[in-house]
Design a protein around this nucleic acid. Sequence first.
DNA 1: CAAATATATGTAGTTAACTACATATATTGC
DNA 2: GCAATATATGTAGTTAACTACATATATTTG
Lengths: 160, 160
Amino acid sequence: MEQNVIDASGLLAISTRLQRLSDQIRKDGLLIYKAFGIDFQPKWFPVLYTLYKKSTMSVVSLSEEIGYAHPSTISLLKELEKEKLIRSKKDKVDTRKRLVELTAQGKTLLSTMEPVWEVIIKATAEITNTENNLMKAINEVEASLQEKSFLQRAEVYIKK
Amino acid sequence: MEQNVIDASGLLAISTRLQRLSDQIRKDGLLIYKAFGIDFQPKWFPVLYTLYKKSTMSVVSLSEEIGYAHPSTISLLKELEKEKLIRSKKDKVDTRKRLVELTAQGKTLLSTMEPVWEVIIKATAEITNTENNLMKAINEVEASLQEKSFLQRAEVYIKK
DNA sequence: CAAATATATGTAGTTAACTACATATATTGC
DNA sequence: GCAATATATGTAGTTAACTACATATATTTG
């Protein structure tokens, strides 16, 4: 029983622990970029790297690609525009759309970052390649929730 | 290379994905409590359950126990005080300390919640007991960071 | 035993995501 | 081809954690 209750508490504590974990990694990431003399915030990575790969995207498609709600993307884009790392233009076919792309400065920055990614990748691998791989665990949990939500699973037990 | 860069992106995306994950579980948790006719917010669990176990605690020791920064605990305690689920009194020995405990109403609520925990525990087990167990993965990553931080690990590669 | 240090609590402000709502433009279907 | 619906973007406000700072009290040490 004791263990069970701790698990119930543990479930709710996952959020906090992982937030703290990623927060710490993000801060360390910032320091690594600094060590390479690069003025860059880790939270910019998903947007910039996606634009690096795909050259031009609308706000919503970019949001879907990186898995953020669109207002989050908009606020990141605002910062990046201020930094002159991206620019945007109207889509001539569908005028609702705003097409976003890297500036020359943005592209230059991204290319100077590649060696840093190598370092980050190696350090990440060291940390997460434990017996229960964190990345894989997240994927698996997301997949099981996709299949049947937490609530749906709970309902089965409630009905009993 | 492609895979590596996706990993670098993935690392930074962990934060978001897990936040969303826990957010969803928390919302479903709220609905489960509702299904049982219990007016309860999942985020209250760690504080209330700890007080249920330990009866009386100071703000800082409670924060340590649940793994939150103390201002977060204080703000939860404010809500719980408003709900009349907890009350506090001064420690007569060390007057800096505020001792927090459940009210009778709080204790009653907690005892009605036990059957709900059973359900939550079962649903959680279904979801997280995959090949790579999420809870265990988190523990392992926290342990490897404890041993050597992300930054320290990265520094080894930078120096090369 | 007084000064320096440590600990406990509290407040204010930040962060990085979110949801809800508003508006403009495009697409669909009768 | 117009009305209803869907999609794209944007703004405002929320959430739940955080850090930094302030103050009061306790403990330690020279």
